[in-house]
Design a protein around this nucleic acid. Structure first.
Lengths: 364, 364
DNA sequence: CGAACTAATTTGATCGATCAAATTTGTGCG
DNA sequence: CGCACAAATTTGATCGATCAAATTAGTTCG
């Protein structure tokens, strides 16, 4: 037999379509006895309402869209991976589906929005970054389409812009600050910062947290000397670390795991060189240490300490905000009311402390 | 004004709904003059047919589903990232959308299929692995749901199973074989293989390619000694590489980038140790070299040679197979006929040769 | 010129749900 | 008992497209 529909179930049960529909969408309108009888029949027949029919009538697709960027810069792409999974999971358990799409540019992205809204009737979008004068967010706002961004819009380095749309972000400065505190507790005092080029506000934010923590610990004077910029690659990290070591740094906080990876290699090399040539150059303090950012799988694999973003929490919150916004228009499908979720939320990262792989003993 | 519909456009143009529908779905049925007039109006009004209405009538959602696994084992997850992007892009340009979902287990995955088929009416699924007695593929086949798998079903190590469903895979053995040939050309002769545990057929396949190439080059006798197994981690790679070096290997082919990363670190360490203590142990032949598998971003970042899978091509083919199968039932929406795509396809990987990052000069 | 066809276009029904309004059932109370 | 009013249920219309069948226009040809 084929898939049951409202009508087929209704005639079997000798009730009307609408009653069954009500059991599903407004149970309080149905007399308890009937409700239970219908619910039992629904379960027995394995009835599931057709999303297409529902969408046609309600103008709701119960689907969110997200643009998938081409395999990102490299090592750091893993964060988006986790984000995507958490987003899918959160959407699913809220009764929504997630559709992916690709775009060549921001302009093309807007064209895709238009198409996806018209054709597939998507209920909202998730963006993974935005700037204050972002054409995409402007377009979405003007059109009144629900959306939420993972990432604050920045006006310029260090100056978050005020935006009226929902966003969730991770407080990078708090992360580097915590990393410095961890290193201080370990006995380090000459803690360097290795970031990518100045212009980027996200990088500036991370640098700022380091600076703040250094100043608070009384090492503010070292800030100019111990802050280095390099290309965001492993090679850049190695070069930058070399420079920091030559300036006396015994620990380095980095704004990415790529940089940290390079820094770690370089520090290991320097240490081995020192050991080999008998120079106790660095042997005075604790072993040199590197902290990365994003806690990518590579960091875990290599035993690199790193600042972890709570992306799963961010994803869940984004879904919370979007579903809340949509529940406002519709007479609450699954919203259990409650306090509205914060439209703009800054989450604190955490420092994952690891000890580098030994690799020492040759053989087993 | 609101979104145009068939009916609204029809009355504006003084033609019937069906004529417009025909212009879109069966242009040959419409007189050229009318067709052009209608097409112009469609473009002018920005008319786009509603997917929900279409789906309700045609029982086609123009959507594929794919299960998203939780952030994979680590470094190697990047391959799926690229695959997913390519899949989205290919689906999009074929007029299909891609929906993600999560599942706790294979059993739960089947439950999700059922739900997604009933509720959202998905047209097909993409799986990212399968085994010969896979409950999921069996369920899908019994139900007649179109699907395609990225990855062959293996009966046991080295023995691909015959399956009747479509799949696309990458010939791992051909990859390791090519890697060996590259190393031979570079002057290496003692080329080791470092793989993960024996049971896994994918790993066995990769090992087999190495073995074949070694035998072909006349080094078959070394095979038992130069093949090592280790846990698929960086630490495992380091340990395995140490063993291989102790057996005289000057180059190592690995079945993953994780292993290769560990091996590379270990080889570098050994080399430096040898240099420091003045032992010309390894200085006779070419510098020791490692080749990884999957060409992950980490490999690129570190200058690690690696065997690259043509995942983009695999994704495109999967979409080709699925759309072809679906076009068979429907009177060809966009299929340009042509020869049917191979239902089962084995693609050749390529070896990406890199020179390791120097990291040598301390400071600048 | 009109019968016999084919080509082009139109009409009514349908996919499976929800909305809004109408109807029936049930309850309280003067 | 019966009227008013709320609770429970049902009915008809609708969302926007396609299908299948009916209608009209246009050709060919004896």
């Amino acid at each position: 037999m084929s898939r049951p529909t409202l009508a087929s179930l209704a005639s079997e049960l000798a009730v009307s379509r609408q009653t069954i529909s009500n059991v599903l969408n407004a149970p309080h309108k149905v007399k308890p006895a009937t409700r239970e009888r219908v619910q039992a029949a629904i379960a027995a027949a394995g009835y599931r309402p057709s999303a297409a029919a529902r969408q046609l009538r309600t103008q709701r697709s119960m689907t969110f869209g997200m643009r998938l960027f081409p395999a990102t810069d490299g090592i750091n792409g893993a964060v988006l991976d986790r984000f995507l999974h958490a987003l899918t999971e959160a959407a699913q358990s809220a009764g929504y589906r997630l559709t992916l799409f690709c775009a060549d540019s921001d302009g093309d992205e807007i064209r895709q929005y238009e198409e996806l809204l018209d054709v597939a009737g998507l209920d909202g979008f998730i963006l993974t970054s935005s700037s204050p004068d972002d054409a995409r967010t402007r377009w979405l706002q003007e059109r009144g389409t629900p959306f939420a961004v993972f990432g604050r819009p920045w006006r310029a380095a260090g100056h978050p812009a005020v935006a009226s749309h929902p966003w969730v972000d991770v407080d990078g400065a708090a992360g580097t600050e915590a990393a410095v505190e961890m290193l201080l507790a370990q006995g380090h005092s000459r803690i360097g910062f290795l970031g990518w080029y100045t212009g980027d506000p996200v990088g500036a934010d991370r640098r700022h947290g380091w600076e703040r923590a250094m100043a608070a610990a009384g090492f503010g004077a070292d800030v100019p000397l111990l802050s280095v910029e390099a290309e965001d690659t492993v090679a850049g990290g190695a070069a930058g670390a070399a420079l920091l070591v030559s300036r006396g740094a015994t620990a380095v906080v980095c704004s990415s795991d790529s940089l940290a990876l390079g820094a770690m290699e370089k520090l290991r090399e320097v240490r081995q060189g020192a050991l080999a040539s008998g120079q106790p150059a660095l042997s005075g303090g604790p072993p040199a240490v590197v902290v990365g950012f994003d806690d990518t799988p590579v960091a875990a694999a290599l035993g690199l300490s790193s600042i972890a973003q709570p992306v799963e929490e961010a994803a869940r919150h984004i879904i919370r905000v979007l579903t809340h916004e949509l529940a406002g228009n519709a007479p609450a499908a699954r919203s259990v009311a409650g306090a509205p979720p914060a439209r703009q939320l800054l989450l604190a990262p955490s420092v994952v402390e690891r000890t580098p792989l030994p690799l020492a003993a040759p053989g087993r």
